[in-house]
Design a protein around this nucleic acid. Structure first.
Length: 784
DNA sequence: CTGTCCTCACTTTTT
DNA sequence: GTGAGGACAG
């Protein structure tokens, strides 16, 4: 058994990997090889004989979990790695809760309510309590409930706290606690848990049943938590309890990248970790392997403005690299055009594939203008997040039928489909059912199933509801016998859903129909896929398929499509990812930082950390763009440049020269003789500016100074060399010639093709490998 | 009860 | 500009 991979680590990383006993905290700066340390640590545990079943690894997103699993598979041979418990907090504890559900009075097939379900239920409750949903805005109410749950305050405890009630009274929402209470009851009656419940109920379970706690303490002897800075109190306590016996707990985090406080994440968890475990070992990973010096320094100069942070010095041995480019546009559409042009130039001049490029924004709504400009330019792209596949109406409709079949008590699913497709059960009927259910303390389903007993409706409407009940029951027969696909297809057909969608021949209607078919396809794939690990449920029935659906965010169904696409996503979604070239768009006050964050220092600091995350996604090229006017909620609004721009050390920026008449807006004007991504300034300014960052950086350790080693292709060249790049030179170019490229360094021409003016050369560079270059853009120097 | 038209709120960020 | 939800007529 070889641990040779350990040699790939630097001394601190290696210590962080090898100290597997006892509590460990790894403070990992951006780009410091955190994921590598985590994966190697797990691999090292497995190689030293720890059973995969005894390792619990918690991540923040499904994507992160998936990636880590893949990487571990690559290092550890055999199928052992499949047995790791690795996933998000929510998915791991949902799994445990399903196993232990009866202890809490839940069936193991409980539904997981997503945010829409929760809001819809709150609206229903507000209606019943005759509260104005303008005052009790469902999203705010849900927020408040969510906060309570994340701090382990039940409805009963909420109602028992005088100050909390007073707070609500002050805010003009005195009944909020009662809404919480009703919500809690309704979820329970519907056999449903919302996202926060998955953590809350886990806490309840572990507290109420010491023997269950003991069982999982024994099982999870080694616990690893990624993105620890983003955990909330509820998650913190679960981890603390599980780790209490063996104390083999390793948390990894970076306080500078904490961007989920809005959802209850608590930086204190990372700051207090030391108090919880006195013999804690702390490892600080401060060397950044990802980005250029310029980018690292820019990030440092921004984050320096935050008051609350752990002492940490992120530095890098990498090259200085390009300066950060600023784009200023007059409108959001122009901004998008500039970004698309910038991407075009990067592909041309730096030979970057689309997949090396990402556009990051603060809000999902900003994606639209970007999409348009990319489409115009013919640049393929992929949007991450946004309206995910599983959030589309038609998908939710079919899933609601499936949910109802599995758990008929699921109130939100029932409300969603009882009259869709329309079957004559309208609002009035539904209201009568809800009232009757409330009176008898039954779920909606129990009320309509026992129509004869509870009599919520009479005559024709009653008959329609009875028919609906009969239909759902017929679906239920398939649960144990039919495969997930057969049953789902049967449901889609007999419910009338497919027919309904087939009628609509508008492009949107067709797309909806296709989406449902795609979901059915996905279910079929599931049926044909074998369980990954030993303890995964082996049956391929519908209820197994549905278990984790609510916890899925982005559908990675599209993997089959062209992978060479530009990525578009929110900065939040970009966390943990890295791209050679990054565009951060919408650098404007009231957008980034968000208007809603300007009330408090804490919130502003979170926005700043978000900007820090955005900057540190970039490896080589970073572009920040803004617009002076922007279309927002149907109106043109004026906006000022973001304050964050001023926080970047100006010497790191490629600031458009004022005297240049709007020229900098136009990427394409003279790119033929001047690489589009090259600083435009005169050579004298370039010289002084490129020299400055190193001198200025006060926190750069001495070793960070790159000694005069071999010429690095990424180091900005002395602009005076430019004069030797004469176009005539290029025309003389022939196969076999030795050339020097400004960025790729020395290379040899392998092939030349194309017609004059569009000549394309294939060149093998010693340092970066083979590239295809358009000669009119590539500034090549022929070596004679 | 159904379908259409109109109004209005909407833009933080995610499990 | 858009999508959800309410008002209203059939």
């Amino acid at each position: 058994m070889s641990d040779s991979f350990l040699n790939e680590l630097n001394p601190i990383q290696r210590q962080a990997v090898e100290n597997t006993k006892g509590p460990v905290m790894i403070i990992a700066g951006a780009g410091s090889g955190k994921t590598r340390v985590l994966t190697y640590r797990i691999a090292h545990l497995l190689n030293s004989g720890v059973d995969a079943f005894n390792i619990l690894s918690l991540t923040f997103t499904n994507k992160a979990a998936r990636e880590m699993k893949e990487r571990i598979h690559k290092i550890v041979k055999g199928s052992e790695a499949s047995n790791l418990w690795m996933g998000t907090f929510h998915s791991v504890f949902a799994r445990i809760l399903r196993f232990e559900a009866e202890k809490l009075g839940y069936p193991s097939n409980f539904t997981i309510y997503d945010t829409d379900d929760s809001k819809s239920l709150i609206k229903t409750i507000l209606g019943e309590m005759q509260l104005d949903d303008k005052i009790y805005k469902p999203s705010l109410v849900l927020n408040r409930i969510s906060n309570a749950k994340n701090n382990l305050i039940s409805a009963a405890q909420y109602l028992a706290q005088a100050e909390v009630l007073e707070e609500d009274r002050q805010a003009g929402k005195p009944k909020l606690g009662l809404v919480y209470e009703a919500y809690e009851k309704r979820c329970f009656k519907a056999s449903a848990m919302d996202f926060d419940d998955l953590l809350f109920k886990t806490n309840v379970l572990l507290k109420k049943y010491p023997e269950i706690l003991y069982k999982y303490q024994q099982k999870f002897r080694y616990i690893l938590v990624d993105e620890y800075q983003d955990t909330n109190f509820s998650q913190y306590l679960i981890v603390k309890k599980l780790a209490a016996m063996y104390q083999n707990i390793c948390v990894v985090g970076d306080d500078a990248q904490s961007i989920y406080a809005f959802r209850g994440a608590n930086i204190q968890n990372i700051l207090n970790f030391e108090k919880d475990y006195p013999e804690l070992k702390v490892f600080k990973l401060e060397q950044n392997y990802r980005s250029t010096k310029t980018i690292v320094q820019a990030a440092n100069s921004v984050i320096r403005n935050n008051k609350e942070q752990l002492k940490k010095v992120v530095w890098t041995d990498n090259v200085v690299g390009e300066r950060i480019r600023l784009l200023k546009a007059s409108t959001d559409n122009e901004e998008a055009t500039l970004v698309a042009n910038g991407i075009f130039d990067l592909r041309m001049n730096m030979q970057l594939p689309n997949s090396d490029i990402a556009i990051l924004y603060r809000t999902n709504s900003q994606s639209r203008s970007m999409e348009e400009s990319l489409r115009k330019r013919g640049i393929p792209y992929r949007i991450y997040g946004g309206l995910s596949f599983y959030k589309r109406k038609e998908i939710k409709d079919l899933l609601a039928y499936c949910r109802l079949t599995i758990n008929p008590n699921d109130e939100e699913a029932l409300k969603r489909v009882i009259n869709y497709p329309a079957r004559g059960i309208g609002k009035t009927s539904l209201e009568k059912i809800i009232v009757a259910a409330g009176q008898h303390g039954k779920s909606l389903w129990d009320t309509i199933e026992g129509m004869a007993l509870y009599r919520p409706l009479n005559g024709a409407s009653a008959q329609k509801v009875i028919d609906f009940v009969t239909m759902i029951k017929s679906f239920q027969h398939g649960l144990k016998t039919a495969s997930a696909y057969d049953l789902a297809m049967h449901i889609a057909r007999s419910s009338g859903l497919l027919k309904e969608l087939g009628i609509d021949k508008t492009p949107e209607g067709i797309s909806k129909h296709e989406n449902v078919l795609e979901l059915l396809n996905g279910i079929q794939e599931f049926v044909h896929t074998l369980p990954e690990s030993d303890d995964e449920v082996a049956e391929r029935t519908l209820d197994v398929f549905m278990q984790d659906i609510a916890l899925l965010t982005d559908a990675d169904e599209n993997e089959k499509e062209d992978p060479n696409r530009v990525s578009l996503m929110t900065i939040h979604a970009a966390k943990g990812l890295e791209y050679p070239a990054v565009f951060v768009v919408g650098m404007e006050e009231n957008l980034f930082p968000s208007q809603l964050s300007l009330n408090s220092r804490e919130e502003l600091e979170e926005e700043r950390r978000l900007f820090y995350v955005a900057i540190t996604r970039a490896e080589k090229y970073l572009t920040l763009s803004s617009a002076t006017t922007r279309f927002r909620w149907g109106q043109v609004t004026h906006s000022e440049p973001s304050r964050f721009l001023e926080e970047i050390d100006p010497s790191l920026l490629d600031i458009p020269v004022a005297s240049e008449p709007k020229g900098f807006l136009d990427f394409s004007s003279d790119r033929s003789d001047f690489g589009g991504f090259t600083p435009r300034n005169t050579s004298s300014t370039l010289k002084t500016k490129s020299a400055k960052p190193q001198e200025l950086n006060p926190i750069q350790p001495l070793k960070g100074f790159t000694p005069l080693k071999k010429i690095n292709p990424d180091t900005p060249q002395n602009p005076n060399i430019k004069s030797t790049f004469i176009a005539d030179d290029v025309s003389k170019l022939q196969t076999g010639m030795e050339v020097v490229h400004e960025r790729f360094g020395p290379g040899k021409v392998i092939n030349i093709e194309g017609r004059t003016g569009e000549l394309k050369a294939t060149i093998f560079f010693q340092e970066v490998g083979q590239k295809q270059l358009l000669l009119k853009f590539a500034r090549l120097k022929i070596n004679e």
